[in-house]
């Protein structure tokens, strides 16, 4: 069993399971903040997905995508939390 097979048949399903649990919490989340944390986590596990994919296809260019996605995750979390805070203030 080569490294590619191991990553493709064992690591990728584990990450898919993780994405599934986080997606369930994202759909279920009783409050908006739960959904924000779930979204942040979805993007962060997506970064892990992209990294494993870059090993499988043997192409290191995907690391740039992972870096940009990690930054976007932080920005979206901060923007959404500020939005909720200010919208509560106006009530």
């Amino acid at each position: 069993m080569s490294v590619h097979d191991y990553l493709l048949y064992i690591i990728m399903p584990i990450l898919c399971l993780a994405q599934l649990f986080i997606l369930l919490r994202f759909l279920k989340g009783p409050q908006v903040v739960d959904r924000i944390v779930a979204l942040d986590l979805l993007i962060t596990v997506g970064v892990a997905f992209i990294l494993i994919f870059s090993i499988i296809v043997d192409n290191s260019i995907f690391l740039d995508v992972a870096m940009i996605l990690a930054l976007i995750a932080f920005l979206s979390t901060v923007a959404l939390s500020f939005y909720i805070q200010n919208s509560k203030k106006d009530d």
Binding site: L41, V45, A48
Partner: peptide, 15 residues
């Protein structure tokens, strides 16, 4: 990579 995937799985079960 196994350790990393397991940590991600633990976090998802936690959330």
């Amino acid at each position: 990579s196994t350790l990393g995937a397991l940590f991600a799985l633990i976090a998802s079960i936690g959330i």
